[in-house]
């Protein structure tokens, strides 16, 4: 059974996408005010005469089967109107529902950003604390699938930048379920970033509902020579790099960030005080990024402990390209991490 809140030892294994589905299903069973809305979350919703109410279950099947169990009153397949349904979910959340909205890809945020930036994030503050906005935005990040510039970004840093929003980046099935459960139960707006490259990853997940606290990072590999911070799928790029580095005699600690707001700086700083070196591995672009922010914070608060400049391995400051050799160079990989670390420990 679960030995530590940030990991589990249960035998039961399910996919990342199934963990998301399970968290949604269980929270809807436990709390009848939970609703979900979004494009294609059921799919085929208008074809009841064909007996089809769940043609897709979401483009990545994270919402499959929910409309059969909870009906179209609570599984609200929407027209293609992100500004309207994201805003409507925020309005519903501020008047008594726990509303989950799905934005198919984070790249689409431009069409509904106003509702996130000016209503969800600011209402409680502007209104002097009169309102809670228990709203979750499910969205997707991740390059590497030939989806090009408008379906592949990892724009979590934009949301970290906005006071009033929280954000999480689950990296495996266990954290996918625990963080989504926490996000739905939370009384603040939370953006939940699913990584497209993790949907088919299998891992141990307890059957009963559980919560992983928002704002907490976890150490997935202990080490003493350098701290590697991974964000979402980059956590596993870090562990892959750490295995290679071990062979070369460098013992890397790997931290899985898990939350992009609040950011668990203390967890990272505690590690750097022991390892004296830091590399943040971020699939987002480098300018004004989470990687930049973490490096700046470590430089300010742990300067005396550092034996090398806090460093970053990120995507370049370009849109995501389409062609395979271009995209392969865009996404950070273990070799780049290893090379960067070699420059810091030598």
């Amino acid at each position: 059974m679960t030995t530590d809140i940030m990991s589990t030892t249960v035998d039961r294994e399910i996919l990342y996408r199934e963990a998301i589905n399970e968290a949604l299903r269980q929270e809807m069973e436990l709390d009848e005010t939970v609703i979900i809305m979004g494009e294609e979350i059921a799919g085929g919703a208008g074809l009841e005469h064909l007996g089809i109410v769940d043609a897709w279950g979401g483009p990545f099947r994270t919402t499959v089967g929910l409309i059969q169990q909870f009906g179209k009153e609570r599984i609200l397949d929407t027209p293609l109107s992100e500004a309207a349904f994201v805003g409507t979910a925020i309005g519903a959340a501020s008047t008594g529902m726990r509303a989950v909205a799905e934005l198919m890809f984070v790249d689409f945020v431009g069409v509904c950003m106003d509702q996130l930036l000016n209503n969800a994030a600011k209402m409680r503050y502007m209104f002097g604390g009169q309102v809670k906005v228990p709203f979750v935005l499910l969205t997707r990040i991740g390059a590497g699938f030939g989806s090009a510039a408008q379906h592949s970004e990892s724009f979590y840093s934009i949301f970290s930048h906005i006071p009033g929003l929280k954000g999480v980046v689950p990296s495996d099935p266990y954290t996918a379920k625990g963080l989504l459960t926490a996000a739905i139960r939370d009384d603040d707006p939370v953006v939940y970033f699913e990584h497209k490259g993790l949907y088919l990853d299998k891992g141990a997940v307890p059957e009963e509902p559980y919560v992983i606290p928002l704002g907490k990072a976890r150490t997935v590999r202990p080490g003493k020579d350098i701290t590697l911070v991974g964000i979402s799928r980059m956590t596993w790029v870090c562990t892959e790099a750490a295995e290679e580095l071990q062979k070369q005699g460098t013992n890397a600690e790997v931290i899985d960030l898990l939350s992009v707001s609040p950011i668990d700086y203390d967890h990272i700083i505690d590690s750097v005080r022991r390892t004296h070196r830091l590399v943040v591995v971020d699939e987002d672009t480098p300018v004004c990024s989470l990687a930049s922010d973490i490096c700046a914070r470590v430089a300010e608060e742990a300067f005396d402990y550092l034996d090398a400049p806090p460093s970053r391995v990120t995507a370049p400051h370009t849109p995501v390209p389409y062609s395979r050799p271009l995209e392969n160079n865009y996404v950070p990989n273990a070799a780049r991490v290893v090379r960067t670390v070699q420059g810091l420990v030598s």
Binding site: A84, T88, G91, A92, S94, T95, D114, N119
Partner: peptide, 12 residues
């Protein structure tokens, strides 16, 4: 910008 908030309240 408040229009969807009213629509959301109507949904509630």
């Amino acid at each position: 910008a408040s229009v969807p908030l009213a629509v959301g309240a109507a949904l509630t």
